[in-house]
Design a protein around this nucleic acid. Structure first.
Lengths: 318, 318
DNA sequence: ATGAAAGCGCTAACAG
DNA sequence: CTGTTAGCGCTTTCAT
């Protein structure tokens, strides 16, 4: 169980640690027969280099910290994390997972010395928490959450996907579009992109308390009462709730009403009919992170990536 | 960026490393004023102990390796991994992620020295791969996949959940139950549990090539043609496909036919109507793993945990 | 071509 | 009460 070390191999072979090391790494200046001897011994005793010790010595790390929240709620975070994990591994790094639920400081302390980069999918809760980060000898990469100038930040532009959805709906001939969500901010944005519209297209807003399935269901009555022929939900979960409402009231999608969601939860592809939705730039985010980790830029990277509309059968054909 | 070390603190304070160390760990036999001095300095220079170095020295690890497969296909694996991560973190460990897609040996080599335990949700592909494990100085915990006597194993008993589903269906008055899946083995089991049944209940089997959504959809015609009043699918994904088929053909669930799936994918709760399904013992698995990791038993732990039926509205009320 | 030795940051046995 | 020191497993500089 204990594992063979370089030193043991040295004793076994009667050579010095240095020579053993040389032989194993196939470096020059080793007598062929000694090289063979060492390699034979290594195989025989199943020598496996202790990477932790090596990294310690070289002050190098093959581990990247990943801080996530609850991973409940929107599935989008989950997708981003999963994709990041995949690419990190592909690039020869291993993701070390932590939660922003407990004490971030505590987690970072526990990671001190094992990671150079920490990716966070949630903003540290308090302003002090942000200050804490400065104490740690590693770089932070914030994804889709605010971050101050000192840290890397990968932002997600939600607006462009939403705008694409509205364009798609109006192009499909929808004339009464309801936006359903919780966010005053987003409402403002929607008002902005719809304000220039002509051709007798009407826009309305239905506000819900939360962005969950039951809220989408509950909003169903108001949406249908408004005479809408299309509805955009701030989350796929709300759209799912609306699907339920439609199912219960024999409302046909998209014949009676077109529906678009947001987040590209895996459900959306599977619903009858498949839900059109705005997807996060999951792959691009992961790429950007891997690039930062591998290239280790001096200055904080700050980029913005766009959401896109995934059109499926829940939007009627123009 | 470089981080303050004990040694630096020693120089700064004019004391020895030992004393600094003592002061910081609040151990006895340190003069109060020196203790204060050291603590002040530590705060001032933002000393954070290098846990990697400490663990290295103490040959102790706060990191647990987690090997997963693609994480595509059944969501059950995903759930298990997510739950494990949560509990591991709760217990003061950090999960280090790897994939069984590439070379497991390579991953284990890269982890040598940083983990004592490796949890695997997939069987190493080849027999040689299993042999390889013996070379590594760490314990393996296999979840829901075969493992030889040397390793810990947490098995999942699928049969009991399936049996519960059949019991529930017959209790609800179903008289023609179709089992739909890909597995010859599971079919054998179903034949077994249904063979003793009386009261004019008929059982049939519809085989599909794959366990995916489209296969469930494709099986719809055969299932309905058979006159079934209940259908059990080997995966929730197939059940989802069947839901689609039902939706397209105006078949009402559960009025026309009761449906049960397997895996408890998150979709199932959300489908109209919510799908009854057999759930894996996700929490129990995670518990068992954490227990092994924290207690480090000498002998290989080998336990079996039961699946359970989650009854939802897709089964008609008796 | 080979080896001695320092040192990464930390712990702890052992002396004073 | 405090300091000296060895050593975890590895890399690498500098002698030989």
């Amino acid at each position: 169980m204990a594992g063979v070390t370089l030193k043991k191999l040295a004793e076994l072979s009667g050579l010095s640690v240095r020579t053993v090391n040389r032989a194993l790494k196939d470096q020059r200046d080793v007598a062929p027969e000694k090289r063979e001897l060492v390699r034979r011994l290594a195989r025989q005793y199943k020598y496996i280099p202790n990477i932790a010790a090596r990294n310690f010595r070289l002050r190098r790390k093959n581990i990247v910290g990943v801080l996530t929240g609850d991973r409940t709620g929107s599935e989008a975070d989950l997708q981003k994390v999963a994709e990041l994990e995949r690419r990190l591994i592909g690039a020869g790094y291993y993701p070390l997972l932590g939660s922003t639920r407990g004490s971030v400081r505590h987690t970072l302390e526990a990671w001190n010395g094992t990671v150079d980069f920490v990716v966070s999918f949630r903003h540290p809760q308090t302003p002090e928490a942000l200050e804490v980060l400065a104490d740690f000898p590693c770089s932070f990469i914030f994804v889709d959450c605010p971050a101050d100038e000192r840290h890397h930040r990968i932002a997600v532009n939600r607006e462009c996907g939403i705008a694409a959805a509205y364009r798609c709906l109006t192009d499909a001939g929808c004339r009464r579009i309801v936006h359903c969500g919780t966010s005053g901010l987003r409402r403002k944005f929607v008002e902005h992109i719809t304000s220039g519209r002509q051709g007798g297209i009407e826009f309305a807003y239905v506000r819900t308390e939360h962005p969950e399935i039951e809220d989408g269901f509950a909003a169903g009555a108001a949406i249908m009462r408004s005479g809408a022929d299309a509805v955009f939900f701030d989350t796929d979960r709300m759209a799912v709730g609306f699907y339920r409402y439609a199912w219960a009231h024999r409302i046909r999608i998209p014949d009676d009403i077109s529906v678009v969601g947001f987040d590209d939860d895996s459900v959306s592809e599977v619903l009858p009919p498949p839900l059109s939705t705005v997807a996060h730039p999951v792959a691009e985010i992961a790429d950007a992170i891997v690039k930062i980790v591998t290239s280790g830029p001096e200055d904080p990277v700050r980029i913005t990536l766009d959401t896109v509309l995934v059109r499926r059968d829940s939007i009627r054909r123009g």
